[in-house]
Simulated scan of single mutants.
Amino acid sequence: MSKNKGARILITLECPCRNLINTNKRKKGIVRYTSTKNRKNTPNRIELMKFCPACNQHEKFKEIK
């Protein structure tokens, strides 16, 4: 049998530049990263600085469902 998952869950981070049409300099499409977070320590949605290849710069990636 499998064990209990515990407090760590898998989350998806998405760049906010996907809503803007003219800012994509390099390539089109939605840029997403996956990460994990502790559900008990961080109940709210998180934002992390990651590199966005569409914007060609570091952006704040926000957690999505």
Results as ranks from 00 to 15, higher is better:
K27P: 04
K27W: 10
K28Y: 08
K28P: 05
K28Q: 13
K28H: 08
K28T: 12
K28D: 11
G29Y: 02
G29R: 02
G29E: 04
G29D: 00
G29Q: 03
G29C: 01
G29W: 04
G29H: 06
G29F: 00
I30P: 04
I30L: 06
I30Q: 09
V31Q: 04
V31W: 04
V31L: 07
R32N: 06
R32K: 10
Y33T: 07
Y33E: 05
Y33Q: 06
Y33D: 04
T34S: 08
T34F: 13
T34H: 08
T34C: 10
T34Y: 13
T34N: 12
T34G: 03
S35H: 06
S35K: 09
S35M: 02
S35Y: 05
T36E: 14
T36R: 12
T36S: 10
T36D: 10
T36H: 07
T36I: 12
T36K: 11
T36N: 08
T36L: 09
K37T: 01
K37M: 00
K37P: 02
K37L: 01
K37V: 01
K37Y: 05
N38G: 03
N38F: 09
N38I: 03
N38P: 01
N38T: 08
R39K: 12
R39Y: 10
R39F: 12
R39V: 15
K40N: 05
K40D: 06
K40Y: 04
K40F: 04
K40R: 11
K40Q: 05
K40G: 03
N41K: 14
T42P: 00
T42E: 09
T42H: 09
P43E: 00
P43W: 00
P43Y: 03
N44C: 02
R45E: 08
R45N: 09
R45C: 06
R45G: 08
R45K: 10
R45F: 09
I46M: 03
I46V: 06
I46N: 02
E47F: 12
E47Q: 15
E47S: 15
E47M: 14
E47L: 13
L48R: 14
L48Y: 06
L48M: 13
M49H: 08
M49V: 13
M49P: 11
M49R: 15
M49I: 14
M49F: 13
K50S: 00
K50V: 01
K50L: 07
K50H: 04
K50D: 00
K50Y: 01
F51D: 10
F51R: 10
F51N: 06
F51H: 09
F51E: 07
C52L: 01
C52A: 01
C52I: 02
C52R: 00
C52S: 01
C52G: 00
P53G: 09
P53H: 11
P53N: 13
P53T: 10
P53K: 07
P53W: 11
P53Q: 07
P53F: 08
A54S: 15
A54N: 15
A54L: 06
A54Q: 11
A54G: 15
A54I: 06
C55K: 08
C55V: 11
C55I: 05
C55P: 11
C55G: 06
C55L: 10
N56E: 15
N56A: 13
N56W: 14
N56V: 13
N56Q: 15
N56K: 15
N56P: 04
N56R: 14
Q57S: 09
Q57H: 13
Q57N: 10
